[in-house]
Write a protein that binds this DNA or RNA. Sequence first.
DNA 1: GCAAGACAGTTGTCTTGACGTTTATTGTTT
DNA 2: AAACAATAAACGTCAAGACAACTGTCTTGC
Lengths: 168, 168
Amino acid sequence: MNAASSKSGSAKRGRKFDSLEQEVFLNLWRTYDRLKALEDEMFSQSGISAQQYNTLRLLRSVYPAGMPTLVLGSRLISRAPDMTRLLDKLEQRGLLVRHRPPENRRVVEVRLTPEGLQLVNKLDSAVRKCHEQQLGHLEEKSLQQLALLLKAARQPHEDSENLSLVDQ
Amino acid sequence: MNAASSKSGSAKRGRKFDSLEQEVFLNLWRTYDRLKALEDEMFSQSGISAQQYNTLRLLRSVYPAGMPTLVLGSRLISRAPDMTRLLDKLEQRGLLVRHRPPENRRVVEVRLTPEGLQLVNKLDSAVRKCHEQQLGHLEEKSLQQLALLLKAARQPHEDSENLSLVDQ
DNA sequence: GCAAGACAGTTGTCTTGACGTTTATTGTTT
DNA sequence: AAACAATAAACGTCAAGACAACTGTCTTGC
């Protein structure tokens, strides 16, 4: 079936991987896992999760306007199937408010409160420092190339409709 | 504080990212999430999770010998804090066996059964096809470069003691 | 040889993620 | 206008991940 595809079938790589594609994916997984561990540790000191932070950051980008729940969910970096409960917690802490506009009571508009805005602003420097710790050892050229390759890697698997923060 | 670091402080990138490092990490997250979705879908048809598959794959690499639980856990691609329960499920399905060697009853040796070996062998082609679908659109040169950059990105954050399958 | 400490797994508990179902609201059809 | 389908969000449930505390097993020092 793939005798013709010399690319992934080259017998030179004998050792641990069935294919170059597998090697790349496992490296992606491992690297994500290691870097996420650093981020998790940073966020745990702030009492907020990475998902929650990204939610607040996204809401800040339209502040003081709001955003419907589903739009918010589709624009997050990683898909979150239970937006409702994630927003519940942030609302309980007074970081955002929800309300149903009378002209279309199906949607729920989510807006950052001044307290939420203040918190996400306060976290910025810690987040930047964390990213610096994660990847600061790489040269600028490598970072740019890595970003490009990662975008190219997922490009065929993006819904063309829902573009997230990281898409151009 | 970082007026001197012209690298991440360059004002040219205004739009969405505080720094190049952040852009790379968010791209890493997003790309991992998208590619993992494909893998999850493939595995859901096999009634086994990616973590479980990697556990079996790792055990195959030493078959017919076994491996202590903790060593197994530290060599997985992503850390799994509840090895016990993960192994419980695989043992219940008859894919592996555990036993405590009398000379050191603290450790638990985990070994693949012939059934487990057969299953992981059967899954190989589906897994390879999935990785091909994930990343087959990239050229070999890009894939090699991506693997190199990913390794370099996590390198300072690896325990030098516990090297996983994806480390050289 | 016995108590203190280290080590390897296990168990309990709480939080998230995943996935299907339900409710409320609106638009459409007849 | 009533019935029907669609959409948006909420809810219920179950499995996975995270974290802490605990049990059983060596090892070491007195």
